[in-house]
Amino acid sequence: MPMLHTVNKSPFERRTLDTALRHAVKGAAILLIEDGVYAAFDGTVVAEKVKAALADHKIYVLGPDVAARGMSEHHVIEGIGVVDYGGFVDLVTEYDKVQSWL
């Protein structure tokens, strides 16, 4: 299995998501946590880019960070998986290694 990339920065303020996507090989997964979760929603200026990335990557978002920020899981882009911390742990073990793009 390729690796899991975690992104914890808002895509509206930082370029971390772009950097992660540029360096994720096909089949690698992306997990959005902390302020990174803002990339997961429909109707934003980055939504099209994230949808396009779904062709090559599984993308996940950390549900507790979504809820904490008053965002709705219903508005998460279709195809993005919502996981809890247990799911985060499962992704870490399922993929070969983790690259945390800080």
């Binding site: 390729p2 690796m3 090989v25 690698a28 070969d96 290694k97 983790v98 690259q99 945390s100 793009w101 800080l102």
Partner: peptide, 8 residues
């Protein structure tokens, strides 16, 4: 991808 541990 070829690495075993990545410290960023």
């Amino acid at each position: 991808e070829e690495q075993e541990v990545i410290l960023s």
